[in-house]
Amino acid sequence: MTLLLRSVALTDRGLVRRANQDAMHAGARLLAVADGMGGMAAGDLASAITIEAIVAADADRPPAELVDAMREVIDAAGDRIRAAVAEDPTRDGMGTTLTALLFAPDNSAVALAHVGDSRAYLHRDGRTQQMTKDDTFVQMLVDEGVITPDEAHVHPRRAVVTQALQGDPVQPAFTTLTPLPGDRWLLCSDGLSNVVREDTISDVLRTHPERAACAARLIDLARRAGGPDNITVIVADLEETP
């Protein structure tokens, strides 16, 4: 039996933002979401630069090389952002999150790379687990026991990130996993996760087997919750075929 990776990617400006600063890629081996930040400082450029740089990793690589490949393209993205700021100092402060999955050619392994507060969820055997940890001020408060996860969800500073791709050195989080038949992955920007609760996200992943309908429903829920930010989702399934 063979595992096939199939995915659907959707993005929406939301109901408040004037522009969409999210960028995404859903390829044969690589899935990625980047959420630009910096407003007038060209957050949309930072996310576009990052996606353009990491697409170089969307190729057949053995499992042992997945993390190194992701590290290499993330470093390249940082270099390009730094060069863009040097070219135009008004861009100083621009940056982007990045959450990406890189699969081995036979889908026998997957590497997860993460910087910032975009998220990856894995839905397996009827349960949904957040596979990334937000690089945010409120997550730091949760880790220190100052506030609860429920309080973090409504904290006024929940969008303050502690690490992003801005041209400076970063320490991405890397995880490797063994994919299983039936796995469903969700990558999303915080335009979804900040306004739609995790139990609701899990219900949608479970009850919408068709990927396009699932992605559309998640975006619809974020818009119904006010759509205060750009919303990007990638829904990907690992399907077993002869």
Rank of each mutant, 00 (worst) to 15 (best):
M1A: 13
L3N: 00
V8I: 12
V8H: 08
A9C: 11
L15N: 08
R17E: 00
D22R: 01
G27P: 04
A28Y: 03
L31D: 02
V33G: 00
G38L: 04
G38A: 06
A42S: 11
L45W: 04
A48I: 03
T50R: 04
I51R: 02
I51D: 00
I54E: 01
A57K: 01
D58T: 06
A76C: 07
A77F: 07
E87W: 10
P89H: 05
L98Y: 08
F103R: 02
A104E: 06
D106N: 12
D106L: 09
S108Q: 12
A111D: 00
G116M: 06
A120V: 14
R127D: 11
M131F: 07
Q139I: 08
V146D: 04
V146R: 12
D150V: 13
A152I: 10
V160M: 15
V160N: 01
A164Y: 12
Q166M: 13
D168H: 13
P169C: 12
Q171G: 06
F174T: 06
G182F: 09
D183Q: 09
D183Y: 05
L186M: 14
C188F: 07
N194Y: 13
V196P: 04
R197Q: 13
E198N: 14
S202P: 09
H208Q: 15
P209F: 07
E210M: 11
A212Y: 15
R217A: 15
R224I: 09
P228K: 09
A236Q: 03
T241Y: 06
